[in-house]
Design a protein around this nucleic acid. Structure first.
Lengths: 230, 230
DNA sequence: AATAGTTTCAAACAGTTGTTTAAACTCGGG
DNA sequence: CCCGAGTTTAAACAACTGTTTGAAACTATT
């Protein structure tokens, strides 16, 4: 049965094309050409384009977690080091050279969710998010509210996600040399982990900051003088 | 001469459709239907779909900066307050209720640049980026290298950008109530500004560690400036 | 070698795409 | 009144879309 290998061939080709063009703009003809199979193969093996897309997204998430599993840390590893490794793995998944289509495809789902997104959120993003929350809660000096934990976690994720989303735009802002030397995965992981660690460590000690009671948002009027003193 | 109003009508309709579906997937038929004009109007007034797209992106950037200009701060305003206002305006631009298509369209250009992107970067993103760099340089306790400034600035932008890109996914991770109370624009601005302030303030004093011990960036000799080699 | 089941293929189908065309309409100035 | 430049319209065009089809090619068991 070569059928399995053909299916896999189509899936990876489809992953690349879907990641590049999105579901609607991607054509089954381009996918089949890239996979070196006949146009009818997609319908023969997957039923229709939509089903192929769903299986492609599932494969993307599966491959990414298999190749780069998030480590299970013993208690001996400091929360700070856990944060650093977490960020590093996340950046590797997002920016790692090979099989970039997998994260690009998932990025598309984040930005414009389709039917494939719900299971992606529950099976992939939420568990990862929960792990980050645990790290954050260990890092924060005083216990904080759940919402604050969420904000802190999103700040970590956001910094990483940015370099995936703006992958082609960031190089337009800085020199090629700088890109290579200071924005490679290792350097970025160091920066983001340190940045987040400093912020989280000092979080919740200065008093309630997010108070800034509901005051109107004309940029003219001074926005919420942050009342806490550094 | 209704021609000007018709052109504007098509432009705003196109902006919305392009922001929703992207250039390729958006159809001129849907645009024209949304603008209540004949299908041929796009070609009559703009030549072709591509030209319409370019003018739409230009309009998006122009409208967004006109409605929400970045304030010019007198020296009396503290850098911390400048940072806060900067973040607040950025979030307002990105998440502000009305005319959301404008930022969604620019977001698409960031993630998958087309021909329209180069001018967008130079005319819109770079000036904004430079202003943020100035704030960051005021906030950092000791002078840091140019690359470090860039990293810090990107960390601020990334946190904001995330809530635009993941606009539909974040609500799947938290409750609706939490979304309304702790992830509205004002609350997010407070959090991100405080988060970034804490991180930047402690940047360049603690010393870096974290895993791969690059003995790299402490205030490097100033600016290994751009040399522009092709 | 013959058969039955599976896989591949070129061709065709119906619908959509951007764009063109030529006729119809609008409306202020002669 | 009609004119004619500017505008709008329905219809048509060729190219492309996902999908179907029926026969050919292939594989494996008898």
């Amino acid at each position: 049965m070569a059928s399995d290998t053909v299916k896999h061939q189509i899936l990876t080709a489809a992953g690349s094309v879907f990641a590049d063009h999105g579901f609607k703009s991607a054509t089954v003809r381009e996918i089949c050409k890239s996979a070196s199979v006949n146009v009818a193969a997609v319908n023969y093996y997957f039923g229709d384009k939509q089903q192929l897309y769903l299986e492609t997204v599932r494969l993307a998430h599966r491959l990414k977690t298999e190749r780069l599993p998030m480590p299970k840390w013993p208690d001996s590893v400091s929360p700070k080091e856990q944060l650093h490794q977490y960020v590093h793995v996340m950046l590797q998944r997002m920016l790692g050279e090979q099989d970039l289509w997998q994260t690009r495809l998932m990025m598309r789902e984040v930005m414009r969710p389709t039917d494939a997104c719900r299971s992606l959120v529950e099976d992939y993003f939420r568990p990862q998010f929960e792990r980050l929350l645990k790290i954050v809660d260990q890092l924060v000096p005083n216990p904080v509210s759940e919402e604050k934990s969420h904000q802190l976690a999103f700040s970590v994720i956001g910094q990483c996600f940015f370099y995936l989303a703006a992958r082609d735009t960031v190089p337009m802002m800085i020199t090629e040399e700088e890109m290579k030397t200071h924005f490679a995965i290792d350097e970025l992981a160091n920066h983001i982990a340190n940045f987040a660690f400093a912020a989280i460590s000092s979080s919740g000690i200065g008093g309630d900051e997010s108070g800034s009671s509901r005051q109107n948002n004309r940029q003219q009027s001074n926005t919420a003088k942050a009342k806490n003193v550094p």
